[in-house]
Design a protein around this nucleic acid. Structure first.
Lengths: 94, 94
DNA sequence: ATAAATAAGTTTGAAATACAAACCAAATTG
DNA sequence: CAATTTGGTTTGTATTTCAAACTTATTTAT
């Protein structure tokens, strides 16, 4: 009756991160931090996990003498997000 | 940008329980256990939490010499579910 | 009549998760 | 040059999750 929900996306903050990336395609650490309201610490470990799962790529470099971390969703990440949304429909449709 | 998601409903099993109750209005322990695939132990503690939050009522009695536990969603539970669904839209709408 | 199995839950304990606080390194500002 | 800001990472504890073990009462089999 109910499909399994990807445990990685069953988290408010990770879902918000993926939600931004699925539309924005690419966004940096600070932008996502502000949009989601996550602390830097939480965001750091969340993107780590999403990266380990292959849902996003992390690109770190120095720009204007400041570190910058850019995140980009992968095809696998898009699929995971789409699947999650589909599965959710079973739960939230009265 | 993103509304908070009720942490109680941010759980596959509890969301499934509420999903059943919001349509069925009333359902018993065994029925929900089978529909959700939860173990009895997990279901027992999940409904405990949902009950503490005032999202459902637990009615226990003996029927045909067997214990029976009937769950019923409360108005507060319905509201929580509706709010959760609304809040989710912000996340899952690309 | 009694031993074994089933039904309907609850309690417990270990493992995973989440969250915030503390930390670090480099750059900038007063 | 000391203090603050920026952009993060690491650490520690508190909570949550999940399954296994347990309980109590009822059937079924012998």
């Amino acid at each position: 009756m109910f499909k399994d929900l990807d445990p990685l996306l069953l988290s408010q903050q990770r879902l918000a991160i993926m939600s931004i990336l699925v539309s924005a395609d690419e966004a940096d650490f600070v932008f996502i931090k502000e949009k989601t309201g996550a602390t830097a610490g939480n965001l750091s470990s969340h993107i780590e996990k999403l990266n380990e799962a292959g849902y996003l790529e992390i690109d770190k470099f120095i720009e204007k003498k400041r570190p910058r971390t850019v995140l980009k969703i992968t095809p696998k990440g898009i699929d995971a997000f789409d699947d999650y949304v589909k599965a959710l429909q079973d739960y939230i449709r009265k």
